[in-house]
Design a protein around this nucleic acid. Structure first.
Length: 279
DNA sequence: GCCAGCCTGTTG
DNA sequence: CAACAGGCTGGC
């Protein structure tokens, strides 16, 4: 479900509310959602800091002076939902954290909810962050200083036969892009998703390089894209679906040229494009 | 590269 | 009923 803009919006919504809150207990309804349930007892851990790396949420905890790291990946339909009073968990609530505020006066709930059960939460010793199997593979943050055209260009030179869409979906090339923002970035760069890298000039790739952070920033401004499941931790939907140029618009008129938006399949993913604006 | 698999729900 | 859905992995 969530790509970089959605995960970032969730991160901000958590960071707004939860620093200082303490986990009183964690209830696990679906053990498969926790990678290492028995390694850590998280009771007494306080939320300190909410970070994001690609589509991962990294939550720094402090347990009586000892740091602990919570790593969350929401995959397709995962959600983290805050509530200030307890409701009965529904059938898709897999983990529930019982929280108390810094002064101990306010109680709150944080639920991990996931219809498809692909999402995962795990706990790490912070020293393991740099060796984490998923995190270690991640390439540059497109909104960070390590997003450099020379690196992007060099990687592209090594994979001349890759399709450009698959290339930007590869989290080791650039982290945080998923199916929506891949299609949207390629539209804005005027490149057909099925173009091979060897057929893209340096100038056009440079254009794509600069368009990617623009699209992501804009989507964060709209608090993400909500089609079916996505909401932030307060249950608020995003609005970037109203701004999409190609994704989920097959059969509709291109907002730029009026041509009919087409949909095909690339690496098993629905792929949307304008046959006139993209070459 | 592609494709199945991991799951459940929704849509055609 | 089959196909598809915002992700990622592992096996050809």
């Amino acid at each position: 479900m969530p790509e970089l803009p959605e995960v970032e919006t969730i991160r901000r919504s958590l960071a707004e509310k939860l620093p200082g809150y303490k986990i009183e207990k964690m209830l696990v309804y679906h053990p498969g959602s926790v990678l290492n349930p028995h390694h850590f007892n998280v009771s007494g851990a306080r939320f300190v800091n909410f970070r994001r790396r690609g589509k991962y949420l990294l939550i720094d905890l402090d347990q009586a002076g000892k740091p602990l790291l919570m790593v969350v990946h929401l995959r397709m339909t995962g959600k983290l939902l805050y509530a200030d009073k307890e409701e009965k968990p529904d059938k898709h609530t897999h983990i529930r954290f019982y929280l108390t505020s810094a002064g101990g006066l306010d109680k709150a709930i944080l639920d991990f909810n996931d219809v498809r059960k692909f999402g995962r939460i795990e706990f790490l010793d912070p020293s393991e962050e740099s060796r984490h199997k998923g995190l270690i593979k991640l390439g540059p943050e497109p909104l960070g200083n390590d997003w450099q055209f020379d690196d992007f260009w060099q990687l592209a030179q090594r994979r001349p036969n890759s399709y450009i869409k698959n290339f930007i979906l590869d989290q080791s090339v650039v982290t945080g892009i998923g199916n929506i923002y891949a299609d949207e970035s390629l539209f804005r760069a005027g490149i057909l998703p099925k173009t091979k890298l060897k057929n893209i000039s340096k100038k056009r790739l440079k254009n794509l390089y600069s368009v990617i952070p623009q699209v992501l920033e804009q989507a964060i401004g709209f608090r993400g894209t909500s089609f079916r499941d996505y909401v932030d931790s307060f249950g608020n939907k995003g609005h970037f679906q109203l701004e999409l140029k190609v994704y989920h618009r097959e059969g509709q008129a291109c907002r730029n040229c009026g041509a009919t938006i087409l949909k095909s399949k690339l690496a098993g993913r629905g792929t949307h494009y304008c046959p006139k604006c993209q070459k």
